[in-house]
């Protein structure tokens, strides 16, 4: 079956700034696709082109095989979208907004709507202007998740949610996936995408630089350990897959490639572990390690232009 989302060499500039610089993205039906990149890398611009809100300057974008600009309305019946910054009408209640957006889309599953309002613990009788950022996001999420849309475009959907609600969100996304729907999940936090995504595309400076399953990207996920052992741990430094080994006052710190973690941990336990913490790499570390990005500066400048 052909891709749900397919872009080839997609380009988009705002004035002098190239927001998308030959973006190739492919999302297969039924998969949860993590769309990962630092702020301002072009995630939102990509989604807005896919929604037909912007027109690409060059290259191709296809959605369900159709043209997102020309066939916007018919494609939108099959899509539900949650923007990164949710703005609600100040004098409409959350419940009214959920119903309105659902009806405008054409599909709203009434019983699922009620269940979701319950699960996300939203008070639908409050006016839009009284909601916090997290609650505004819940309104948009519930409206999108209560639809029968085949494709969910979610732009940083959990940015304002607390951990409890994020757990609910992950649960619901898994159910969506079980129903065979496709999800494009944009985020700048690797750990968030990792738990849900079947495949991940990493976008940087308007280009996809890595794409594949989590297993494919294992080489990217290097975990940082800080360990205090009863016996000296210097031997760890020579093990395969261990990098940046440095002893610091009674502790050692090092990075381990994903595929070597098991062996290293066994070796460690023989030394008598007294304290251990492990931290997955952040996206910024990954990009820094693999592409030598200077974090922040160019990315942030682009973020403002892309909005």
């Amino acid at each position: 079956m052909s891709s749900v989302i397919e872009t080839v060499g997609l380009e988009k500039s705002f004035g002098k700034v190239r927001a998308l610089d030959g973006l190739d993205l492919s999302v297969a039906p039924g998969e949860v696709h993590g769309f990962l990149g630092p702020n301002g890398a072009g995630k939102t611009t990509t989604i807005r082109v896919l929604l037909g809100l912007l027109r690409g300057d060059a290259g191709q974008a296809r959605l369900f095989g159709g043209d997102p600009w020309e066939d916007a309305v018919s494609l939108h019946r099959r899509i539900a979208y949650v923007p990164g910054d949710v703005e609600l009408w100040p004098n409409l209640t959350g419940g009214e907004t959920i119903d309105l957006l659902g009806r405008l889309r054409g599909t709203l599953n009434a019983s699922r709507r009620d269940t979701l309002i319950d699960r996300f613990d939203l008070d639908p009788t409050r006016k839009g202007r009284t909601y916090s950022k997290g609650n505004r996001q819940k309104v948009a999420l519930i409206s999108a998740l209560a639809s029968d849309a085949e494709l969910l475009l979610l732009d940083e959907p959990t940015a304002g949610l607390d951990p409890l609600m994020e757990a609910v969100f992950q649960e619901v996304i898994r159910e969506m996936k079980a129903e065979g729907r496709t999800v494009l999940l944009s985020s700048h936090i690797l750990a968030q995408v990792e738990v849900l995504a079947d495949r991940i595309s990493i976008i940087r400076l308007g280009k996809v630089v890595e794409s594949g399953t989590l297993r494919d990207l294992r080489h990217l996920t290097r975990t940082t350990f800080t360990v205090e052992t009863a016996q000296p741990a210097d031997g760890i430094a020579q093990m395969p897959g261990v990098f940046n080994f440095e002893p610091t006052d009674g502790q050692v710190r090092f990075d381990v490639d994903g595929e070597h973690i098991d062996v290293v941990v066994r070796e460690l336990s023989a030394l008598g572990v007294q304290a251990i913490t492990s931290r997955p790499p952040t996206l910024e570390q990954l990009l820094l390690r693999h592409y030598g990005d200077e974090i922040g500066a160019p990315g942030e400048e682009r973020a403002e232009v892309a909005r």
Binding site: L51, A72, H76, Y81, V86, E87, W89, L101, G106
Partner: peptide
């Protein structure tokens, strides 16, 4: 500009 038009235009509502 505030961003309330976008979610509406992302539904099956034409420009």
């Amino acid at each position: 500009t505030v961003g309330r038009g976008e979610p509406v235009l992302a539904t099956a509502v034409s420009r």
